[in-house]
Design a protein around this nucleic acid. Structure first.
Length: 112
DNA sequence: AAGTTGACAGTTA
DNA sequence: ATAACTGCCAACT
């Protein structure tokens, strides 16, 4: 589903880009939650907006969207979906332990 | 203009 | 640790 909102007039940079930028700073082998990204991007409380924004990413994007999970460490997709499988796989490739679509946040959560 | 949706989160049990 | 419930807010109908 397409459509990306207009760039903000002041900055010239869309909120989407800011979020993507933050996501790109997540180190390999670590994960973050939607809410965490929202905070770091300066949009505290807009976790859902982050999710919606990541959904706008084109396939094959460089943005490591797969390092973003729910606060409880679960993958946000339905277990039967294609994206779910892909996310688990890419995380595993990076050395993040994914057990039943779930990651131990206490172990892999990215902290500044 | 008003109601619905969603790649969420905090609190409570 | 899991689950149910409630609050959230921009984007989309």
């Amino acid at each position: 589903m397409p459509s990306v909102s207009e760039p903000s007039i002041e900055s010239g940079i869309s909120r989407e880009q800011i979020i993507w930028q933050v996501v790109c700073t997540i180190p390999p082998g670590r994960v973050a939650s939607y809410g965490q990204i929202a905070r770091l991007a300066g949009f505290q409380g807009l976790a859902r907006f982050v999710g919606r924004t990541l959904s706008q990413l084109p396939d094959g994007s460089e943005v490591p969207w797969y390092r973003v999970l729910k606060q409880d460490g679960r993958v946000a997709f339905s277990p039967d979906s294609n994206r779910y499988v892909q996310q688990c796989q890419r995380l595993t490739e990076e050395g993040v332990l994914v057990k039943n679509g779930r990651v131990s946040m206490t172990q892999f959560r990215w902290t500044l």
